[in-house]
């Protein structure tokens, strides 16, 4: 009996949380189209999510491209298909690794920062202060972060794709002795716009998830520093889980 009681409570709490999160997503989206448009606030968030993430994306994408080339070469060499390494690196980066790795990195970096900042604002009553000054906290705090996530994730992914392919080229041509012209030709030969745009659509979805979940968790923070810590951890874990789960569904949607 106690099991059913606990399970029931867990289900109710889960559904309540999902509903509250969906409501926050909805409101953040609706406020995109309602004035006032705080461009300074928006550009600050874009800089924080986008420009601030460039160094980590650069390092991750470079080494991912490099390791893909090494592993691809090892595998393809077994059936004399080393020439396909460029194609595999390009397709892997644009369709999957570029958006997913960028999403996971931004969730860990910018998502954690969003949850910690909003969580601190919540526990120090700055969110309430905004409301008492007749400013809607969702419009002022969440909407700019939501837009920044949706816009900057695809841009970071383009950067990540390019850097990853460059990393693969570097290893293939300089270390594994591939012909530079042939490698580049194989890189572009089978790469279609659909591959790139599919990856960018995923990135936009991930950007929305990161911003929405992180802001929600920040707004739920209570109980001082410990609460902010819990909100930050929760934001990263839930964002990353949702990125991996939604990745499958977006991929399935794009295939259909």
């Amino acid at each position: 009996m106690r099991f059913f009681d606990r399970f029931g409570k867990w289900i109710i709490r889960f559904l309540t949380e999902m509903g509250a999160m969906a409501l926050l997503f909805y409101n953040a989206f609706i406020y995109i189209f309602r004035p006032p448009y705080r461009l300074r606030n928006l550009s600050k968030q874009m800089e924080s999510v986008g420009v601030g993430s460039i160094p980590v994306v650069l390092i991750t994408a470079t080494f991912t491209g490099m390791v893909l080339a090494l592993q691809g070469y090892t595998g393809f060499k077994r059936f004399n298909a080393e020439g396909l390494v460029g194609t595999v690196v390009a397709l892997s980066m644009t369709r999957e690794l570029g958006p997913v790795l960028t999403g996971l990195i931004v969730a860990g970096r910018a998502g954690a920062a969003m949850a910690a900042e909003l969580g601190t604002m919540k526990v120090t009553e700055q969110v309430d202060a905004l409301a008492t000054l007749a400013v809607n906290p969702i419009q002022y705090l969440v909407t700019p972060r939501f837009i920044a996530g949706i816009v900057m994730l695809p841009l970071l992914t383009v950067f990540s794709d390019f850097i990853g392919i460059a990393g693969g080229y570097l290893i293939s041509v300089n270390l594994l002795g591939a012909n530079a012209g042939a490698y580049l030709q194989r890189t572009t030969q089978y790469l279609e716009m659909e591959d790139i745009f599919g990856g960018l659509l995923k990135a936009a979805v991930f950007g929305g998830i990161i911003a929405g979940v992180s802001c929600y968790k920040g707004f739920q923070a209570d109980g001082g520093a410990e609460g902010v810590g819990r909100a930050t951890t929760g934001a990263v874990v839930v964002s990353e889980m949702l990125i991996l789960i939604s990745n499958y569904f977006v991929t399935a949607f794009l295939r259909s």
Partner: peptide
Amino acid sequence: RKRFGMLFQGAALFD
């Protein structure tokens, strides 16, 4: 709420 002013316990200044 524009007709209100509120002083918070910890001041709640936007840091």
